[in-house]
Computed example of a mutant assay.
Amino acid sequence: MDLPSDSCKYITWHKVEQHGIQGSQLRCPRIREGSCEEDLLCKQVRYTFPPKRRTLEKTKWETWLQENWEECTNLNLSFQDLGDTYQVENFKRILRRLIRVEILWLVDNSLVDLSAIRLPSCRILNMNKNYLTSFKQLPKIPQIQHLSLAENHIETLAGLSNLQYTPLESLILTRNPCEFHQNYRKRSSIKKIAQFKREKTYR
Rank of each mutant, 00 (worst) to 15 (best):
R175T: 00
D6T: 06
T166P: 09
C178T: 10
D108K: 04
P142G: 08
C28A: 12
Y184M: 08
L168K: 04
K15T: 03
C28I: 00
I103T: 15
R53P: 01
E179M: 09
G159M: 03
F49Y: 14
I154M: 10
V45E: 14
E89P: 01
W61S: 07
E37D: 10
Q25C: 03
K186G: 03
K52N: 07
L119D: 06
Q137Y: 12
K43Q: 11
K58V: 05
P177G: 08
L40E: 13
E67S: 06
E57I: 08
N109T: 09
K140V: 01
K200H: 14
I117S: 09
P142R: 07
S78V: 00
P50R: 12
E102R: 02
Y131E: 14
R96P: 04
L56N: 11
P29I: 01
V101G: 01
R27I: 07
I154H: 08
N128F: 01
K191R: 13
V88H: 13
L132H: 02
L111K: 01
S35V: 06
L171G: 10
T63I: 02
W105N: 03
T63E: 15
G159C: 04
L168H: 09
F135H: 03
T59A: 13
L82G: 06
K92T: 12
F196N: 04
N74M: 06
C42P: 01
R123Q: 15
R203A: 11
Y10W: 15
I11M: 09
I117T: 05
D84F: 12
K129C: 13
N152R: 02
K9I: 15
L132R: 00
H181T: 05
R175M: 00
R53I: 13
T59S: 14
R185T: 14
D113N: 12
R96D: 15
W64H: 12
H19G: 02
P50L: 10
I117L: 05
R175Q: 11
E151G: 00
A150W: 04
Q87G: 07
L114A: 06
N130Q: 04
R46L: 13
W105P: 01
P142L: 01
K60A: 06
G159T: 08
S134Y: 04
V88Y: 09
Y165A: 00
S78R: 03
K129A: 08
L82H: 07
K43L: 12
L163G: 05
N90R: 15
E62M: 08
L95H: 10
L106D: 02
K43Y: 11
Q164K: 10
G83V: 02
L132M: 08
D84C: 08
I94K: 06
R187L: 15
W69T: 00
E17N: 09
Y86A: 00
T156F: 02
G83S: 08
H181C: 10
G20M: 07
K60T: 00
E169G: 07
D108P: 00
Q87N: 07
V101P: 01
N152K: 01
L98Y: 10
L40R: 12
L132I: 02
L125P: 05
K15Q: 12
Q182T: 15
P50V: 06
C178I: 04
Q195W: 13
L3E: 11
Q145V: 01
S110E: 14
I193E: 03
L95Q: 04
L95W: 07
R27Q: 09
Q182P: 08
P142V: 02
